Simulated assay, not measured.
Amino acid sequence: MHWYEKLRDYFPVEEMKSREHMETLLKERSDIYHKDEGPKHVLMYVETGDFIFIDYLFVSGSARGEGLGGKLIQKMKDKNKPIILEVEPVDYEDTDTEKRLRFYKRAGFQHATSIGYNRRSLATNEVNSMEILYWAPDDESEEVIYQAMKKTYQDIHTYKDKTFYGDEYEPVEKVLKNDREDAEDVLKEI
């Protein structure tokens, strides 16, 4: 199965970039956008001089429990840069959401509670709320994480959006906020 099909079959449609978008990023933004693929995994990530953003991490069901996800995360941690990713809030009807949060908590990730992230999906036209998790080797602040998320949104998520989707994503100022005060730590109860 092609790497894109593995991702498409696992991630919700509102979170997926199109195949053309991702292949173009790999070609035109190969300086920062990367794919690590093996028989049992697909890891799509952004790496700049200052941070890593995990765009997609897929480990096949047959490999779960073998430690592969942890090894991939450790490979990113070994670069000694803040690592950022987006996760769905816990949905108790979808046990995978809780398992993902538990996995990232065990891996040492924190919830960026001050950052709000609500993006309208161009595929479904619905607003999709995500939580930002991060791992910071030098106790970087949530402000550093917020700035890295803004850069990722502008340079990766919205890259040539009109070309690929016939529409533009909302501006970063509308999607990302760094002043959320009422958020509960999604990792606290996990």
Rank of each mutant, 00 (worst) to 15 (best):
I145H: 03
V13I: 13
D94L: 05
A112C: 08
K99S: 09
L133V: 09
T95F: 07
Y159F: 15
Y159S: 12
Q74V: 07
I156L: 10
E86Y: 03
E15R: 03
K40M: 12
K27M: 13
F51R: 04
H41F: 13
L25F: 13
F109T: 02
Y56C: 06
E184W: 02
K188W: 06
E131V: 10
Y56M: 06
G166Q: 03
K99C: 00
V144T: 14
Y92F: 12
A63R: 08
A136Q: 10
H21M: 07
R64G: 13
L26R: 11
K17F: 03
G108C: 02
E189V: 10
K174S: 12
K150G: 03
V144M: 11
E170C: 01
I145V: 15
K105R: 14
T163W: 14
F164W: 01
L25T: 14
D50C: 08
T24E: 15
E14G: 04
L72Q: 07
F53I: 03
M149S: 12
E168A: 07
S121W: 10
N125I: 03
Y169Q: 01
Y45P: 00
K35H: 09
H21Q: 07
E5D: 15
K75C: 04
K188C: 11
K105P: 01
M130H: 05
Y56L: 06
R19N: 09
E142L: 00
F109D: 05
E131H: 10
L43H: 05
D96L: 11
M22K: 05
E142Q: 15
Y33R: 04
R120F: 05
L85M: 14
T152I: 03
K75W: 09
E86T: 05
N178E: 03
Q154I: 11
R120A: 06
F58E: 05
E88Y: 06
T158Q: 08
A63K: 10
E86F: 01
V13H: 11
Y165Q: 04
L122S: 10
K160R: 15
T48S: 12
L133S: 00
I190S: 05
A183N: 13
H111L: 02
M149R: 02
L43A: 10
F53S: 12
Y169H: 13
L72Y: 09
K40H: 13
I115W: 06
T97G: 01
N80R: 08
K40Q: 14
K105Y: 00
Y134V: 11
P171C: 06
E5K: 14
E168Q: 04
A112W: 02
A183V: 09
D94T: 04
R8P: 01
D36H: 07
V127Q: 01
E20L: 08
Q110A: 15
F11H: 09
R180K: 07
E143D: 15
V172L: 09
V172W: 03
T95G: 02
I83D: 12
E88K: 06
K162C: 11
K17C: 06
L176P: 05
L43M: 11
V127I: 15
F58R: 03
N178Q: 07
D91E: 13
W135H: 14
L68F: 04
M1V: 09
Y159I: 14
M22R: 05
D179E: 09
V46T: 15
Y45H: 04
W3P: 00
T97V: 01
D50T: 11
E15D: 13
K151P: 02
I84W: 00
E88V: 03
K6D: 13
E170F: 04
I32E: 09
K6W: 09
R119H: 13
L122W: 11
D50W: 04
G61F: 09
E181P: 00
